[in-house]
Design a protein around this nucleic acid. Sequence first.
DNA 1: CGTGTTGTCTTGACTCATTCAAGAAAATGG
DNA 2: CCATTTTCTTGAATGAGTCAAGACAACACG
Lengths: 148, 148
Amino acid sequence: MSASSTYEQQLRSADLRVTRPRVAVLTAVHDHPHADTDSILGAVRADLGEVSHQAVYDVLKALTTAGLLRRIQPSGSVARYESRIGDNHHHVVCRSCGVIADVDCAVGGAPCLTPSDHHGFSIDEAEVIYWGTCSDCATASQPTPATH
Amino acid sequence: MSASSTYEQQLRSADLRVTRPRVAVLTAVHDHPHADTDSILGAVRADLGEVSHQAVYDVLKALTTAGLLRRIQPSGSVARYESRIGDNHHHVVCRSCGVIADVDCAVGGAPCLTPSDHHGFSIDEAEVIYWGTCSDCATASQPTPATH
DNA sequence: CGTGTTGTCTTGACTCATTCAAGAAAATGG
DNA sequence: CCATTTTCTTGAATGAGTCAAGACAACACG
């Protein structure tokens, strides 16, 4: 059975109609985690031929709302999507080149996910973004690690 | 001595020239934490009269780079700024109305701020955003808390 | 298998936060 | 007070994302 039938099932169990653009978007996000909308549009078009950008926006919104995708948007970046969901993982973002990598929470479950004072908010999710520099950018900007 | 002289000192110690727009922006952000650029522009104009939006953008960028302000931008929101810096505090954002409140980290220092696998990244900051519903929105959408 | 209903996709225009560029004005150092 | 350098003004441009109306396709039902 093809990989796309898995996506088809995901769509059906989320009560969403199965359409070619939707399967293509699911496939694209699975294949390119943390891709932005434009890259996804490109991947979908490579797969299906011409597809309107509006369709991709609609599909991404529908799939995100249905919980099949997760949308992340670090400051200064455009919206990005990933298919790894429901496992409490977080992200490291490179300040220099913007790459995103997944990280699991160091302290097991959800330690700092319960703030001391919730100000009357009822909290349903804690999102953690680690900011730093990826090894490539660190190497590029400082070829010889200072020792003096 | 006026409150603005404090901001003047902040600017000088950050090696930034002291200009009326900069003092006004610092004042505005102190007075309206989590304000977006447009609100800040409004506050600055109420203070000084006509000021170009470009100036406010430039000032906000300069102050953020200098570390006098912190920029936050939850997904789906425009850029917002705050003056509380360097104290490892985080934010709760209401999914419904977008209000932002400050929260301190529950577990003291910086617990989950050291990911298990940093993928070669050198991390300098961990940003935590709690997503939920503020008490006002919770009340509005569900006047009678379910008890049955 | 055909048909109707409902939800999805296409097309095309539009909004608005943010950025770019060039010149005028103001802030610091001497 | 003048020169230098940075900042502010003006005006235009960029680009992610949204809105709206109609064409089209997926699914349920007979």
